[in-house]
């Protein structure tokens, strides 16, 4: 199939970007979206033009590196699918395909389609962990966890940290990403001792990074390649209110108010 691509090109974080038209000829419908871009890049190189920069790594939908807003939708038209697992059979010959980076102030463009997602790491660093020293914890089976709880925690834990939730949200809110970790650890007994501190610190960091807040439009759930439910946002909100009432905000990790 032949496609007309409209691609965001931007030299670096300091320069302005623009949309550029690139023709993609003889694309195999069996190739993945990123393989289509590989072929386009080889052709660009042949013409002496710099290839299009985009993040990718595992190409099997689990590392969370790939991104791309394709025809206005983060990760493209297929439900529950990362860009790397999107296949060209989802497109028709002659189609115009618009390819843009994630857009959010807290996810600045570094080059072409690559954005800086270190803000996501900093949110996790603020509290997305159980403080358990490496050593000799009790036997793993000493504490049974009801299967439904373990399964629910797992459903949240599948988040790949790609950023599609923030990219899909009109408020640029990564609430689904933050909630996935808060919820996973709030459900499990291991996460209980730090549950108040964790939710306050993570939400606080989210705000500091310049991300917006959730206004319940559920765009994130529709865009999430791992199909994480907004139910986890509801749980996080509950955790947040509970923590705000119960806890004297700790100075550490809470802005010192």
């Amino acid at each position: 199939m032949d496609l007309t691509l409209h691609v965001w090109r931007q030299k670096n974080s300091k320069s302005d970007g623009h949309m550029e038209i690139v023709e993609a000829k003889d694309v195999s419908e069996h190739s993945s979206f990123l393989e289509m871009l590989d072929v386009v890049n080889e052709n660009l190189l042949g013409q002496g033009k710099e290839p299009i920069a985009f993040d990718h790594d595992c190409r099997e939908g689990i590392c969370g590196a790939c991104s791309l807003v394709i025809n206005g939708e983060p990760h493209g038209p297929e439900y529950g699918t990362t860009t790397c697992q999107l296949h060209m059979r989802s497109f028709k010959s002659g189609q115009h395909v618009y390819i843009e980076p994630w857009r959010a102030r807290a996810l600045p463009v570094l080059k072409d389609l690559i954005v800086d997602r270190t803000s996501f790491d900093r949110i996790q660093q603020a509290g997305g962990f159980v403080s358990s020293n490496t050593g000799s914890p009790q036997d793993a089976n000493a504490l049974p966890i009801p299967k439904p709880d373990a399964d629910k925690a797992f459903d949240a834990a599948v988040c790949i940290g790609c950023g599609a939730c923030a990219a899909a949200c009109k408020n640029a809110s990564p609430m689904l990403f933050v909630a996935a970790k808060v919820s996973q650890l709030a459900i499990l007994p291991q996460g209980k001792p730090e549950r108040e501190r964790r939710v306050l610190a993570m939400v606080d960091q989210m705000k500091k990074e310049g991300f917006g807040n959730c206004t319940n439009q559920y765009e994130c759930e529709a865009a999430c390649p791992k199909e994480i439910s907004v139910e986890h946002i509801a749980r996080m909100n509950r955790e947040y209110f509970r923590a705000a009432i119960l806890e004297e905000p700790e100075k550490q990790g809470h802005g010192g108010d």
Partner: peptide, 22 residues
């Protein structure tokens, strides 16, 4: 054996059976 204990302590959601054990 220590690895499994350590990971469970970190909140890694391993598969469990209906008795709640791994």
């Amino acid at each position: 054996r220590n690895i499994i204990d350590q990971c469970v302590a970190q909140g890694v959601p391993f598969a469990r059976d209906y008795g709640g054990l791994l």
